[in-house]
């Protein structure tokens, strides 16, 4: 009963935040509502028994996406201030609202009429012993559906390449993003010194714990990326040059090793196998390098393309 009350309240808050993010007049307000929305959704995942997803949502949805949006907004509004076209409730918006309502109702109907669930809980549990990870979600991510995860780690790189493509030609090779300046010894700089050790610890813990309990490469990698982002925003470090070989090696090392493992399976007449005997440490090793690549890639996604002209 009380649980339902909690769920109902949370759903209403989620809808309110999403509604404000969609309908809100000012773009900044919409972005703030979206950040809030991410926090609430992370809580919702806990109620759905999905702690791993909650971790990912807390780190990515509420954290990184918000930073990306705020940074983008600051850079766009600096350039444009022209009033944007009105989207008052004319006939098209009314039709859109109606169509959205119909589609949402159809989806809700489809959801309500779903047949008896036939999830894979049991099958995952049966094979968990051979999977090399006690956490079923990690077992699915790295082993049972490892090919998805491998491709996904490459999707991140594709996005980064896309972003780098947007650099101006003169700036190519230079440091990613603008150079952040802060007052030395100021609040931000102090904060940038205190946070990283803790964040580093938490990030590594999440990866390490991920094979037994909720956590894993993506969650840990996001935390590590966030730490790096804070350090750079606090002006304590500079973002690396996009032409830097070490940076590029760090970006690809995770996918490369994962791919190499996939090819090694050919010896056994298969593709992407973790032999049960070695699965435990292999998964941990793959996760470790993946975390490094994911952390570096995510941070570079936030920094953006190089902006300052490269000094010869």
């Amino acid at each position: 009963m009380i649980a339902s009350l909690f769920d109902l309240t949370l759903c209403l808050l989620i809808l309110a935040a999403a509604g404000a993010a969609v309908f809100g007049r000012a773009a900044f307000m919409a972005v703030v509502f979206f950040i809030v929305y991410g926090i609430l959704i992370a809580i919702a995942w806990l109620r759905l028994g999905a702690i791993d997803v909650a971790l990912a949502e807390a780190a990515i949805g509420a954290g990184l996406t918000g930073v990306l949006l705020l940074a983008a907004l600051a850079r766009i509004t600096r350039r444009i201030d022209a009033p944007e076209p009105s989207t008052g409730p004319d006939r098209t918006t009314l039709a859109t609202a109606l169509a959205s309502l119909v589609i949402a109702s159809a989806i809700a109907f489809a959801f309500l009429t779903l047949p008896e669930p036939q999830g894979l809980q049991e099958r995952v549990a049966e094979n968990l012993a051979d999977a090399g990870a006690e956490n079923p979600v990690t077992a699915v991510l790295l082993n049972f559906r490892g090919w998805d995860t491998l491709l996904e780690s490459i999707v991140l790189l594709a996005a980064l390449l896309g972003i780098w493509t947007l650099a101006r030609d003169e700036a190519w090779g230079g440091r990613a993003g603008p150079r952040h300046v802060t007052r030395p010894g100021g609040v931000l700089a102090q904060f940038g010194r205190v946070l990283p050790p803790i964040g580093l610890l938490v990030g590594i813990y999440l990866v390490w714990a991920g094979s037994k309990q909720p956590g894993g490469a993506f969650q840990g990698g996001t935390v590590l990326a966030a730490v790096w982002i804070v350090t750079i925003m606090a002006g304590l470090m500079q973002a690396p040059r996009v032409a830097d070989r070490a940076l590029r090696a760090a970006l690809v090392i995770g996918p490369v090793i994962f791919l190499a493992l996939a090819v090694a399976g050919v010896v056994a007449g298969a593709f992407l196998v973790f032999p049960p005997v070695h699965a435990g440490w292999l998964i941990l090793a793959v996760e470790a390098v993946l975390t490094l690549s994911i952390a570096v890639t995510l941070a570079m996604l936030v920094f953006g393309p190089p902006e300052e002209e490269e000094k010869p």
């Binding site: 028994g49 999830g119 699915v140 559906r145 995860t149 996005a159």
Partner: peptide, 22 residues
């Protein structure tokens, strides 16, 4: 909770982040 959709959703969240960043 079925772990397979959870893994897919985590993948989906990361993919959505990549698309958003680009």
């Amino acid at each position: 909770a079925d772990p397979v959709p959870q893994a897919m959703i985590i993948t989906g969240i990361v993919v959505a982040l990549s698309a958003t960043a680009l």
